[in-house]
Nucleic acid binder design. Structure first.
Lengths: 155, 155
DNA sequence: TATAATCGTTATGACAGTACAACTATCTCC
DNA sequence: GGAGATAGTTGTACTGTCATAACGATTATA
């Protein structure tokens, strides 16, 4: 996949059209860098011995305990499927299901220590930056970091 | 999802560790920008009325005709599944299967005009850059474009 | 206390993705 | 021309994803 990024330069006063073209080219490269790592997904699946949706749920839960319905919502799925996933994770000893103290209908899902370790392993595989990024000059990398921080803040 | 991108500045002469940290932070933001668009995948699926793997194959084919085995290889799958996908796309009138002139064992898959339009529609949905990117100053965007071109070339 | 609403679970099943073996048609090379 | 290789297809089966409906337990409300 090669993009038309070379042709997308933003000349000053070139109008919104050129800006859109440049932003699209940049975003296309990002998509290429992130999505062309299907092998990484496979690596995570193999390293943890479970399907990717499980690791996604596990990583989400490391940010803090969630109720079943909240988890379902975060994962953009429904409650029955959340039950299925948590059943599996619990069987593996990676999460714990406890009754909510204030509302005994609710269950709270918490990651165990083993779960936290597994999630970190997955994260380390997925977050390893691509070669081209590590090959940049110090100052280029620093510039990129600064601009990307701004992009993230604005999204 | 907030990253630790603020803490990841590269000080000159700070060693490989700081570089790795900065690159990881940048890559984390990229993953956030690209992967937090699962709704876009759903939008594509709904707009084209077919599963995402079909659109992936279709978009790949717009770059040029491929033989079945080549397509299977590009899609990281096997020949039987490629057959399944092309069967479906052909039934929808989006691609055409013709016998290779030099080797009558081979079939060449070509996108039709309708297929090209469908692929462009999908691409326009997927490639729309996120807000934060469009909100950058002209010169920041230009810098980003230049550095990203280098990153892509080095990956 | 009776009724309705909410939370999670169970049950069922559809569909997509993937892998493997077997088959047909064609080509290559001796 | 015959043996073996190659391209694509068909058939089968298994796993993962995800939706729907019905259910039991608990809570809130009338």
């Amino acid at each position: 996949m090669t993009t038309q990024i070379e042709d997308a330069a933003v000349a000053p006063g070139d109008g919104e059209d050129a800006r859109l073209r440049a932003a699209s080219a940049v975003y296309a490269t990002m998509r290429y860098l992130v999505l062309d790592q299907d092998d990484r997904r496979a690596a995570v699946v193999e390293a943890l011995g479970m399907s990717f949706s499980r690791t996604k749920a596990l990583r989400r839960l490391t940010a803090g305990p969630l109720r079943m319905s909240e988890l379902a919502q975060k994962l953009l799925t429904d409650k029955p499927y959340a039950t299925l996933i948590v059943d599996d994770l619990e069987r593996r000893g990676l999460v714990l299901r406890t009754v909510h103290p204030d509302d005994r209908r609710c269950k709270v899902v918490t990651v165990t220590e083993a779960g936290r370790l597994a999630a970190e392993l997955a994260e380390s595989i997925l977050a390893r930056p691509p070669r081209g990024l590590l090959a940049l000059e110090d100052e280029e990398l620093e510039t990129l970091r600064r601009v990307m921080a701004k992009v993230e803040a604005g999204s």
